[in-house]
Design a protein around this nucleic acid. Structure first.
Lengths: 340, 340
DNA sequence: TACTACTACTACAACGTTATCGTGTTGAAA
DNA sequence: TTTCAACACGATAACGTTGTAGTAGTAGTA
């Protein structure tokens, strides 16, 4: 097994100095045409590639963006990553992804690991556990070290940094408004417990829509799922005897479980109940009936986040305090779970 | 913005040499108790963390595993990554993930990037395009450089390395056998074009099952989807007038599209047609009716792949030629798309 | 002949570590 | 008083790069 070829080896082999090899390969005019050709030919022949680690160390930057996401399962995160990758690659950056699996500890470990030289900046959507614990020391630490950080989707207000979010309140409001426009009179919502920011915000949107239309808020029509593992059960019993004609769910899964629960009661979608979900993932597209959803434009989110981060990375001046929060508009994709 | 703290800075601050700081932090007995405490306290106070890049350069290894996957969308890959992460973390390794997006070029770029010092070894499932092109230079190159590589799922026979696969033929055979046992007489298959190895193998399993049960093979009952983007259409027209009572699909999506197509024809699942898919993902679980599928045990696959890789990385001796191929058993998860 | 200017290279330092070897100061044995 | 460990620390090299500064050798000019 031969080790990777280095400048030193080339130098020894061709009986020149390391500097000469380095310069020849970078087409320096200091090196004669002859020598340059010789060195380049040799390097090409033996497939020389500079060692990134050495370059990172020397340049004190890695041209790499670290992305930390809570769970890769969600199609939404996939699309965000695509967006990040596209912009990053265009600008000559590389992307590495780490999962926190929604665990606070893993988020901390991964961030510390990446922060120690491997990457130039972070794009992160924080873990559920982190939101719950409200322990942000790892985030502030990274920021204090002068490493730019962009948050997306699940952001933390208290942290001062660039953010890319969707207008959860508005997205939810538009969805519920649509249900109202379709003639729904009794609209329920399946949300999450309030410490999950998106759940809280989407619930707000639901409430606002009802208020604006003069519909009285009925707390019995709000389900805040506690345990994701048991969400199917929670939803089933919540919907067991509700007489409703519209339902808004804050994610795809909840919407699907709701549709199943309705089916078990013999209710027809969308004839008896109209259902709208959140997040335009695979599941929404493939479900039966296909699901009308609020789309989050994940790719755009990723792209904007990457742009923000790279802008920070490339600006030599420290324009501190100049943190932006970009709000991505949501869309509503109408499918077969709502009356047309 | 303060830069990251280095040994040098600590040394200057405490008026000792860099060596002393390094040794103190590593609890060397060479350093007096007093000095050691002082240095450690200082380091802790200012949150010193060694620079990974420098360590990687010095040690010529990064304790990091690079994972290259074609598309993150699939739940299957997610589970594989979980398996990899678990084993890797246990053994003190870090995992970074890159997506090839099924593009040959991106696969090459990502591999070259990671191979130049960032990681110690690869775990890869190759891109569709790579299988099609049969251009494996980037893989052989990495191997020739002495970097261990483990392939999983979509492997390439010609490449000599450790592999972790499922027995696609057997998995498919068991699924089709199940359909036969359920009394299905006319069983169709929705597969992919043959250059995708898993499609080819699963088709073989289908054929074998029929043969073993003395059922004549009918080429009209085999669909080889060409274009994934248009798969829904292809499947719809394929199933338009088929009189069948069993269907085996080589992935979840195809199965779902098939169920939709049947529904459009007014056929009931599983009463009129029994359907079995492949890959036990979210979609199978959530679809309506829920889908009976062949499960691939992704987490186990990832775990085994990581174990193989780490074993190679830690073995100082080069036991070349000792490449293994581990075959993971598939399971059959029965849900509501087959008669009970 | 002496100086300058240019060409084509080499040497060195630095990025942040750690392992190896070197060294000055003590204290005690001879 | 001399010698020699033991102790506690410092200097150096190395990992693979690149940029700056330095230097032979040649050619041209006065």
């Amino acid at each position: 097994m031969r080790r990777k070829l280095t400048l030193k080896q080339i130098a020894r082999e061709l009986d020149v100095s390391i500097s000469t090899v380095s310069k020849a390969l970078r087409d320096s005019i200091e090196i004669s045409e002859d020598t340059r050709q010789k060195i380049k030919a040799f390097a090409k022949l033996y497939n020389y590639k500079p060692n990134n680690i050495a370059l990172s160390l020397k340049n004190r930057k890695s041209k790499t963006i670290g992305v930390i996401i809570p769970e890769i399962v969600h199609h939404f995160f996939t699309t965000v990553i695509s967006g990040i990758e596209q912009v990053a690659n265009e600008q000559g950056y590389h992307v590495i992804i780490c999962m926190s699996n929604n665990s606070f500890d893993k988020e901390v470990i991964n961030m510390e690991l990446l922060a120690n030289g491997s990457i130039d900046g972070f794009i992160i959507s924080v873990a559920k556990e982190t939101q719950q614990k409200k322990d942000y020391h790892h985030l502030t630490e990274v920021i204090n070290q002068g490493m730019p950080l962009v948050m997306f989707d699940r952001v933390i207000e208290e942290i001062n940094c660039d953010k890319v979010i969707i207008d959860d309140v508005l997205g939810a409001k538009k969805a519920v408004q649509r249900l109202i426009d379709l003639g729904c009179k009794k609209i329920a919502i399946i949300s999450t417990v309030d410490y999950i920011s998106v759940g809280k915000l989407r619930t707000q949107g639901y409430i606002q829509a009802l208020e604006e239309n003069g519909i009285a808020l009925d707390q019995n029509l709000i389900l805040r799922v506690e345990d994701f593992e048991k969400s199917e059960e929670e939803i089933r019993s919540f919907l067991a005897e509700k007489e409703i004609d519209g339902l808004f769910a804050v994610n795809e899964h909840f919407a699907i479980y709701a549709i199943k629960a309705f089916a078990e009661r013999g209710l027809k979608i969308p004839e008896d109940v109209s259902v709208i979900g959140f997040t335009n993932g695979e599941i929404s597209k493939l479900s039966n009936p296909s699901l009308t959803t609020v789309s989050q434009h994940g790719a755009e989110m990723g792209a904007r986040a990457a742009s923000l981060l790279i802008k920070k990375l490339e600006s030599t001046q420290e324009q501190e305090e100049a943190f932006q929060t970009i709000i991505i508009e949501t869309g509503l994709i109408e499918r077969n779970s709502t009356k047309n």
